[in-house]
């Protein structure tokens, strides 16, 4: 039973099996199962979400390594990334956690960074950026939904009422309309009547709307108003000219208002006048006495009476006695 042919078959079979194992190993792991190739970098995040060991690390969409380990350190979550040795990551590149599919496959995405930046060394830390967590977004959406529901509920309560007395807006409106339907009907018919009249040109408002003459009058009035406005403008311009002249001290009024010399002269004149009037009032001087002293008046009156008599005598005795009469009346 045991012959060389059988042994050869077993040997061949075993070698074939081992070759298949090797081929599978090479094609599935790229020969990187037991020996660790490449270098590691650390990516710190606030939350690693669903990131698992062996998830992909991609740079601009190209797979460049895998997540080797996840751990908590220094109050944050850290992912240790093993990067292929042929890939250099610029120090200003940023890592984010991305989601590859709806079934929750995550990966770390690294952007290209700037080409001139120095590459990250083994064990260095890469800059990270927080990406919005889908769960957080969902929670916020849920909150929003609840608020919306609450708002719609209160709106619905306001509109439809919640069973208490008085009812909601629509019920109140409905009741208002039902109770006042007769009044509303009357109002509507009045309105209709008014609009009909307006349309037919009846009444003041109707004529206002329908009469073309009124329009012409209105246009003429506006024209006149325009002319008046023009005149007013001219007047105001003149007035402004006068005011500016006055301001610049030209003319009598200007001198009066702005010339200090003239003002002081005027003051002196007024003062003199005042002194004069005071003296007159007190009866000082000729004029004062003339005004205030009755004796002069009486003397004059007497003189005039005497003169009158003398004249009467002259008439009677002729001109010869005129001198005698004058002398008589004077002495």
């Amino acid at each position: 039973m045991n012959n060389p042919q059988q042994t050869a078959r077993v040997g061949l079979f075993f070698l074939l099996g081992m070759a298949l194992v090797w081929v599978t190993y090479e094609s599935l792991s790229g020969g990187r199962l037991f020996k660790k190739e490449g270098y590691t970098i650390v990516a710190g995040f606030e939350n690693l979400e669903d990131l698992k060991v062996a998830d992909d690390v991609k740079m601009a969409g190209v797979s460049i390594g895998s997540v080797e380990k996840t751990r908590l350190s220094k109050g944050r979550a850290e992912a240790i990334l093993r990067i292929n040795p042929s890939v250099k990551i610029p120090s200003d590149a940023t890592a984010t956690i991305g989601m590859a599919g709806l079934i929750g496959t995550n990966y770390i995405g690294i952007d290209l960074g700037s080409p001139g930046a120095a590459p990250l060394a083994d064990g260095a830390e890469i800059r990270t950026k927080v990406t919005p967590d889908i769960n957080k977004i969902m929670t916020q959406l849920g909150d929003l939904g609840q608020k919306l529901e609450g708002a719609l509920g209160s709106f619905s309560t306001a509109v439809n009422g919640s069973g208490q007395a008085g009812g909601g807006l629509f019920q109140k409106l409905d009741r208002l309309i039902t109770e006042n339907s007769a009044k509303i009907d009357a109002t509507m018919s009045n309105l209709q009547e008014i609009t009909t009249k307006l349309n037919q040109g009846e009444g003041t408002l109707g004529r206002l709307i329908n009469d073309p003459k009124l329009h012409d009058d209105l246009v003429a009035t506006v024209g006149e108003l325009k002319t008046a406005a023009g005149q007013a403008k001219t007047f105001i311009a003149d007035a402004q000219g006068i005011v500016s002249q006055v301001k610049s001290g030209q003319g009598t009024l200007g001198v009066l208002l702005y010339d200090e010399q003239a003002a002081s002269n005027l003051k002196g004149t007024v003062k003199n006048l005042k002194d004069l009037s005071d003296k007159v009032a007190r009866g000082e001087g000729s004029l004062g006495r003339l005004i205030n002293d009755d004796s002069l008046f009486l003397s004059a009156q007497t003189t005039l009476k005497k003169a009158d008599r003398a004249l009467d005598g002259m008439n009677d005795s002729g001109p010869i006695t005129a001198v005698g009469i004058v002398a008589n009346s004077l002495f």
Binding site: M1, N2, Q6, T7, R9, V10, F13, F14, G17
Partner: peptide, 9 residues
């Protein structure tokens, strides 16, 4: 080897 033949091959 004989058993390998029987079991495997």
């Amino acid at each position: 080897i004989e058993q390998c033949y029987l079991i495997g091959y």
